[in-house]
Amino acid sequence: MSQVLSPGTSAPDFTLHVTPDQCLSLSELRGKPVILAFYPADWSPVCGDQMVLYNQIRPEFLKHGAEVLGVSVDGAWCHQAFAKARNLHFPLLADFEPKGAVSKSYGAYREGDGVSERALFVIDKDGVIFWSYRSPLAVNPGADGILDALERLTS
């Protein structure tokens, strides 16, 4: 099992599709905390879904000035349909080509399964990882760890 990048590590920059015709780079968000949430796949069961939870909790993240980004190996069209169906208001990034490259750079890729791990990173305004956590694949980690980290980061 891979080891996710530890606190204190500089967060690897990336540029990924956020819609079929738009890309987003991590470095564009420099100056504010960023929550990177790697997850295995779009379309997991509705109400227990991690992205639905973060969407609902997003106002709490924004109180800390933090942006949340979801990352999976699903393609941009898939993300677009998923975001529309779940009414998501934050970007889902497609780690699609080369497949899983960004997930791998964060130590958050499952080689055998070909999907991202359920891994969370809180990155500070200077682009350094402040907190990271890898959850068992079947367990949605919730948001309490993220909020604790944001509180420590911005206090």
Partner: peptide, 23 residues
């Protein structure tokens, strides 16, 4: 809702048995 967020609710339903989340 906000208390639940801080207590580790990760979706619905979320059950806690003596403070331990039932996964």
């Amino acid at each position: 809702f906000l208390g639940g967020v801080r207590h580790g609710v990760n979706g619905t339903p979320a059950f806690f048995i003596n403070n331990r989340r039932h996964d």
